[in-house]
Amino acid sequence: MRKATAAAVLVAAPAVALALPAAGATAASTGQATVSILHGVPGLTVDVYANGEEVVGGFTPGTLTDPLTLPAGSYDLAVYPAGADPASAQPAISADDVAVPAGANATVVAHLSAEGAPTLTPFVNTPADLAAGQAELTVRHVAAAPAVDVRAGGTPVLTGLSNPQEASATVPAGTVSADVVLAGTDQVALGPADLTLPEGAETIVYAWGSAADSNLALATQTVRANGSAPSGVAAGEAGTVEGGLPWWVAAGGAVALAGAGLSVVRSRAQRARS
């Protein structure tokens, strides 16, 4: 198992840069980025505004959007409780000058911190170069819960994962029964669930919700190394957004849920190779 150094992006000024590496030469050369959004804050249905325009209303917990290819640039974002009037209400989360760099392929997760506070973590989707018959399993801990181990077929494959860390392992493609247990124990926190791991792709599992409120849930996303668009299926309080996200382009905005003044941490804590 190889551990990587965590990278912190400090939101210390009005300008917020996701600082994501290029996801492909084509996207970078055309000045575009691919962004998906996961809403992982339980009990909070929101309306999302980008550049002063409502881009999605009634965005419910457990929803993982389809990916959007959007122009690289800088965007202002505000997230309000559903139905609130932006003219008088205070946003639940807001950020100005959110920078989305060309070539990025990212999933931005609005979720709870380990202590239960709403926060944001942007993750870079970087599928590994896989041999024939192999798949990549990535788990992202974005729940208000202690550190966990991830088991496949009852055997730990990723251990000691804390919020907001992620970990990856190369495994045989196919269907695997996976569950999430408290780190170092056999106490099941989530699952078991049957996961289909496509050959040559990165399957990303998000553990979100709150252990204290007994609403932990899983969401999954698939990203292919050949540059094809990622896909996602959310499990929990809502399904996927239908019809993609063309409203982002029409509104000239990007949903990149960032909180002003927050410390945003993106870390690939562990990557295991079999």
Rank of each mutant, 00 (worst) to 15 (best):
87 A>G: 12
34 T>F: 09
199 E>Q: 00
273 R>F: 13
132 A>T: 11
116 G>A: 00
73 G>F: 04
89 A>I: 09
164 P>F: 01
228 S>W: 11
179 D>L: 05
237 E>W: 08
78 A>W: 04
144 A>W: 03
191 G>A: 07
192 P>T: 00
174 G>L: 05
191 G>T: 04
194 D>C: 02
45 T>D: 06
134 Q>C: 06
104 A>S: 09
34 T>R: 11
215 N>C: 00
11 V>G: 14
253 G>F: 00
139 V>M: 05
7 A>C: 12
15 A>G: 15
202 E>T: 13
43 G>D: 01
43 G>W: 01
1 M>R: 15
62 G>P: 00
155 T>S: 11
269 A>Y: 12
109 V>C: 04
55 V>E: 02
203 T>F: 03
183 A>G: 09
140 R>W: 06
184 G>A: 06
33 A>R: 02
156 P>N: 07
34 T>S: 11
37 I>M: 12
17 A>R: 11
108 V>E: 01
233 V>D: 12
264 V>I: 13
259 G>P: 13
74 S>Y: 10
48 V>M: 01
168 S>Y: 03
185 T>M: 08
73 G>M: 05
109 V>I: 02
123 F>C: 10
175 T>A: 13
172 P>D: 08
207 A>E: 05
195 L>F: 00
125 N>Y: 08
37 I>K: 10
143 A>C: 07
56 V>K: 07
199 E>A: 07
163 N>T: 08
10 L>D: 11
111 H>A: 01
148 V>L: 03
49 Y>P: 03
184 G>I: 06
110 A>M: 04
201 A>M: 04
156 P>D: 06
271 R>Q: 14
54 E>G: 11
101 P>V: 03
138 T>M: 10
13 A>V: 15
89 A>R: 09
22 A>T: 09
233 V>H: 11
223 V>C: 09
85 D>C: 08
54 E>I: 13
19 A>F: 02
178 A>N: 07
241 V>A: 12
51 N>Q: 09
270 Q>C: 14
187 Q>L: 14
129 D>N: 14
263 S>T: 15
47 D>K: 05
255 V>C: 03
25 A>M: 09
17 A>K: 10
158 L>T: 04
115 E>L: 09
265 V>A: 10
159 T>A: 09
19 A>P: 01
39 H>Q: 06
181 V>H: 02
212 A>S: 11
31 G>A: 00
205 V>S: 05
27 A>L: 11
271 R>W: 12
96 D>N: 14
240 T>R: 12
102 A>T: 05
235 A>T: 13
174 G>P: 00
111 H>Q: 01
120 L>T: 14
141 H>P: 03
59 F>R: 07
102 A>L: 03
170 T>H: 11
114 A>T: 14
208 W>Q: 08
229 A>H: 04
191 G>L: 06
207 A>Y: 04
178 A>M: 10
35 V>M: 03
135 A>T: 02
252 G>E: 01
36 S>T: 08
199 E>T: 00
250 A>C: 12
114 A>L: 12
167 A>I: 06
143 A>H: 07
194 D>F: 02
194 D>H: 02
37 I>S: 10
13 A>F: 15
7 A>H: 13
16 V>Q: 10
190 L>H: 01
231 S>Y: 13
193 A>S: 13
67 P>R: 06
162 S>C: 13
